[in-house]
Amino acid sequence: MRLGRLTAVGAAAAGLALIAAPANAFTVTNSGSNSVTGTAKGVTTLTANGQVLSCQTSSVSGTVNPGSSNPVANITSASWNTCDWNGYPASVTVTNPNWQLNYVSGATNNANDTNIAGTITNISNVLVTINGPAGVCTFNVTGSVNAIFKENNGKGGQEITVLSTGSTLTISNRNNFFTCAGLVNNGNTATFSGSYNLNTLAGQINVLP
C-alpha cells in the first residue's frame, strides 16, 4: 500500500500521532525522496475550552523511514499562519519538533486504500500566543493525535487527515490567569483537525501488510 505525500500536523502543525506498536506486521518502502512535505488543504483548527484557534495556512515536513518498524516518519518542521482565536489575533510557534508518525492498521495490497490508521505522537514544543481582550495570553500544547492516510494510488494526490477524535492534546504553561481569563486554562484537553496533501518529490510511500 502507498503512503504518499505526507502531521503533526500535522499541524500543523501543525501539527501535524499513531500510538505504540501496530497489531500487524508491515513494511514501508519509498520510491521517491525520503524527504516529505505536507500542505494543508484548507483551514486547520485547534479546539480547547469550547473555543477555536483557526489557521488559514499550514505546512509540515519531515523524513520517511523505510523499513518494518515505527515511526514510519518523523515530522521535523511545522508551521501555522494567519491564525485567530475566536476572533482575536493569534500565532503558533513550533521549535525543533520531533513528532513521530506511526502505523497502526489498515494496510492492504490495494493501492487505493483510503483508511490507513495511524497516530502522531510526541507532539511538543508548540507555543500558542493570543492577543486577547485583557492582554497577551500564551500556552503550550502537548500530546498525540489520531490520523488517517489516503493512498489514492497517487490519483489526485495522497493525503493525511488528522482526526479530532481520540486526541490526547493538553494545554499547559499558561502564562497568566488574568490575561488568559475566559480563553484557556491549564489542563484543558484539546483537539486538532486538518487535512494535508503530501509530496515525496515524485515518489510514493508504500505501506505493505
Rank of each mutant, 00 (worst) to 15 (best):
N30I: 03
N146F: 04
L6I: 13
S54P: 08
S58I: 03
G135P: 00
S195A: 14
F26T: 02
N34Q: 08
A21R: 15
N96Q: 12
L46V: 10
P89A: 10
A190M: 07
V126H: 00
N146K: 02
G118I: 01
A107V: 11
A147V: 00
A20S: 15
P97E: 05
I148S: 05
G118R: 01
T47A: 13
N188T: 09
N49C: 10
P71R: 02
S91G: 13
G194Y: 03
T170F: 06
N146E: 03
V36C: 02
L53V: 14
G143C: 04
V141C: 05
V9S: 04
N102Y: 05
N153Q: 08
N24G: 09
G38L: 03
N185L: 09
V72T: 05
G10D: 05
N140F: 08
R174H: 09
T7D: 08
I171G: 00
N74I: 07
T44Y: 00
S144Q: 13
N125I: 11
N153W: 03
D84T: 14
N112W: 07
V9E: 04
Q204N: 09
V126S: 02
R2S: 12
V28T: 10
T76V: 12
G154T: 15
N185V: 06
V92I: 12
N140K: 09
F178Y: 04
T44I: 13
R174F: 09
F192W: 10
G182C: 14
V60C: 14
N186F: 08
G106C: 07
T114K: 15
P133I: 05
V104G: 00
N30T: 08
N96L: 09
C180K: 03
N186I: 03
C83A: 10
T63I: 13
T200W: 06
G32P: 13
A181H: 07
S91I: 07
N199M: 12
I75W: 01
T142K: 05
V36L: 12
N112P: 14
G32K: 10
T57G: 09
N173R: 14
G42K: 09
N30A: 06
L163T: 04
A25R: 09
N96S: 14
T108E: 12
N125Q: 10
S54W: 03
I116D: 02
F177N: 08
E159C: 11
I19W: 12
I120Y: 01
N30Y: 08
A117D: 06
T114G: 06
A25P: 07
A181I: 11
A40C: 14
L201Y: 07
T93R: 15
S77R: 09
A202H: 15
L101G: 00
S33G: 01
P133T: 07
Q158V: 12
L53D: 07
T114F: 11
N70T: 01
A25E: 13
V64Y: 01
N115R: 15
L3V: 11
A12G: 13
A17P: 01
P209N: 09
S54K: 01
S172K: 08
A40D: 04
G194D: 01
G106T: 01
R5E: 06
I120S: 06
A73T: 02
T45G: 13
L163M: 08
N102C: 12
G118K: 02
P89L: 14
